[in-house]
Design a protein around this nucleic acid. Sequence first.
DNA 1: GAGCACTGC
Length: 1144
Amino acid sequence: MGRARRRHNWKARAGARGAAQARPQEQPREHPVPAELQLGDGAKLKGVDESNALVLPAKKAKPKKAPSAVHHQKKPLSKKQKKNLQKILEQKEKKRQRAELLSKLNEVQASEAEMKLLYTTSKLGVGERMYQSKRVVQEPGSAVPEKIRSISGANKRRHSSESESEEESSSEEEKEEHKQGTETSSASDLNAAEKLEEGTKKPLANQQAVPTAPVCQTASNRLSCKPVIFIPVDRSPEIQEARLKLPILAEEQVIMEAINENPIVVICGETGSGKTTQVPQFLYEAGYTSSNGTIGITEPRRVAAVSMSQRVAKEMNLSHRVVSYQIRYEGNVTDETQIKFMTDGVLLKEIQKDFLLLKYKVVIIDEAHERSMYTDILIGLLSRIVPLREKKGLPLKLIIMSATLRVEDFTENNRLFSVTPPVIQVDARQFPVTVHFNKKTPLDDYSGECFRKVCKIHRMLPSGGILVFLTGQAEVHSLCRRLRKAFPFQKNNNAGVDDDREESVKEIRKFKKSRKQKKATTLPQIDLDNYSVVPVDEGDEDRDAETDDDIAGSDMDLDLGDGDSEEDEKPDSSLPLYVLPLYSLLAPEKQAKVFRPPPPGTRLCVVATNVAETSLTIPGIKYVVDCGKVKKRFYDKITGVSSFRVTWISQASANQRAGRAGRTEPGHCYRLYSSAVFMDFEKFSAPEITKRPVEDLILQMKALNIEKVINFPFPTPPPVEALAAAEELLIALGALKEPPLTGRLKEQQAAKLSCPISPLGRIMATFPVAPRYGKMLALSKQHDCLPYTITIVSAMTVRELFEEFDRPAVSEEETVKLKGKKARLLHIQKIWAGQGALQKLGDLMVMLGAVGACEYAGCTPKFCEENGLRYKAMLEVRRLRGQLTTAVNSVCADTGLYVDPKMKPPTEAQATYLRQVVLAGLGDHLARRVQAEELLDEKWKNAYKTALLDDPVFIHPSSVLFKQLPEFVVYQEIVETTKLYMRGVSAVEPEWIPALLPPYCHFGKPLENPPPSYCPETGRIRCHRPSVFHRVSWQLPAVEVDYPEGIDRYKYFARFLLEGKVIEKLDSYKRCLLSSPLIMLKTWSKLQPRTEALLQALVAEKCDNRDALLAAWKKNPKYLLAAYRQWLPEAMHGDLAKNWPPVL
DNA sequence: GAGCACTGC
């Protein structure tokens, strides 16, 4: 019922908005909701995939960046090509060997989990044979050059030369298909997962065998040979001209032929190649949006989705109704939309509603190299959706776009794509960037090294912006401060500069020497081919380009060791430097400054964290200073405890940073580490999915009925420990059905990693928040708590609600200002925390109070500024509240919920209830204060203990409960810094724990005191049971629960029945009973035949509660009469029989 | 008694 209504609502809403994007009423039952994804390891063919995986560009390969000075440039590098190719192949071979080993390991794991699925496994064998036999016919060795030629335009020949083998394989394919068909019909329970399984093998045939894919083939023939479909686009001349400069335009033919002929294509092209804006246009022009098809493009960031849609609309001269975007909270999609840009999470949610993504003809996954969690999952899902769509005769094209050539995880993974998709490389329009390595790698003072390098660049090198990469806010601010001190400039005539206190400067002088300015036009141009020998640590290769200069170290390398820092620190106002900080949490208006040109006569210097690497592109940067470090969050796979660590970046990251110098003109990148250190960097950083807790992802997948998550074709799978931890948490939250505790241990363990989703889990999965929070929402309908839970959950989900005032100030003046703000925030937080029962909600009450107060005041930037709140965060909370309110309403329409800007604080009772809701969601995040008698060591003073950690944890000093130290608390997260600190803390009453978290408790025998009782409301026996918390065995207060199943429950039921508490009519016989009902419980009760008779009668019909008894009487009105009669004198037997059964 | 990079539903 709930589901039907939900669908109805969705339709109604979509209609009302005039945004009928989907037609959910179409084949509502046909969407295959796979019962599970059963995926075998596809057959692996040695010798073929490694050469086939990387179809090199028709033109050229990018050189490896080994030397100390390297140009990223467009020049063809034919000399090096062979060498590079050799290198690449060597690396690939190594990788392949490793992958083979891994896949063998996976096979072992998978086969253990799949033991009972013999049916599927046997079919897999068939698939393997199919695959191999076909490839043998094709002569694997010749596959690669053939493919390249076909892509570069000689496809007619290819068609004819392959036709023979195609025929052969197709007839074989038909036979196999026939076989499979009979098998299928004999197995009545063939589920959608197995359909998926078949689907995986389909493209093998489709690519090579014409008859099996009539739709696809005709379409491609039409498009590649005789393009009858061509949708004209009316572009303005200026756009047309700009477009023609993009290298990707030259590759249109190649790209479109590859797409027409293959279901899945990989396109590699660095930023600047124009692939994101142009490929959708190619597809549009080729008719992929005709007959109501949509082209969907996913981006990893909201801004990208919005700006790309705007740009493509402009380039194509089409309305936003046709080229649209959809991000979490907003979109301009209409029923006319043909090209849709969206964030990856949006498409993932759409798959939940329509597994086959029927409205799309093409899906493009952009920036796949970033390997965000959602793109990885999308690629895994799409690898199955594409063959399913092909089978339906409604082919879907999948295009994976990547900026790097690291695509082996996609192409060489035949669990993912059994046929290696072609890889097309396109050039980027980038200016050459000269890379300079340090001779020495500073051990820890990279910040100081940055300072010296910037000073030198600024003093000695021609104009052009400087971008410095550091790791965190504090570093950014302190470097800004030092640089501003060293190169001050007058800000009076410039409103754009603030919060810095420079020494006043008399006048801003022009750039120093004319000779230096000359340098701008004579930048060294170095041929990459000169660096076939890798020099170590030497930055002076391009010294020839820059010779006599009276200032030491004035060559482009600036690499003359430790510059005189004393001198550097001395203010030099003749060289004004316009220094700006940049990091993600910086207020947007301050961020925006980096996009504006610097004040005249100054040089721009942006000191940034990693935001500048991918998210934000700063114009006019000519010099990049790269410290080579990044601050990353690490999670403990089992406990989920996180910490922040500064580590070396990857080579890919370093190159991405370097590339930021060549956006508008040739540039230079100064790496503050040696080339030897660089060579030791990882090639790429690990995909996000392998580094994070995955419970949210697992819940989403289970909601798609993917039960055996371990068999899902992840491009890179998460660690098994992480999967197990996620599954365990979801079971404890009640989102997954608990595996049966019967069977052998091995089976039990296997079952534990393939639990189906529960009805509660389905509801939780509809909420776009972490499962723990989803559980809170699912529980909060009672006591009018939903608006509060929604607000708390929103506030916990949005990061960094409060402004950070602990950063080092830029000036003394600012120090005072920050101190004042901090004091003010502390004060107001105390007020928001409330008193009494409210205060026990702890930090969550502070969040609730902050949001409540901010909304009450209209959520103005001024209010936020005055009260230490981040305006951007508060807006996000507001939008998330709106989204969650809608989500809750569509699960449960009768709440009549809305977002109330004037929400009152919760009552004391509500606050208490909220704490219980929070406990139910954060059950695994329970901590108990270390008891006095356990205080063995000073380090445990004021400490808490958790179930999973051996070390002490502490309430964070910023918590409002820091001084209260409640006996039990739950926390939002633990972050390890100097100690393990709990953040987002809320107090818990001990007696709630066994009542609300039974999965985490072990219960003891029912207590005698207080004695068991009969509950008139439920008709069941209740009792008090002591309990302990799992793993740590904390004693918890006894809690009243249903009496545990067993003979004693019957005894108590018999007693209360005799006492007339269960059935009212029996009350009148109570005084005439021949024995006391209490003897039912005595150990010697067996000595009395009437106790035994009554007990046996109850057990026989499983009557240990009122409902069961009433049901038994319905079945047999004489039930229990004989046994009960024995308890009464004979004189009453007649009367008793007349009134039996004693109901009505 | 404190120091958190970056994202997506």
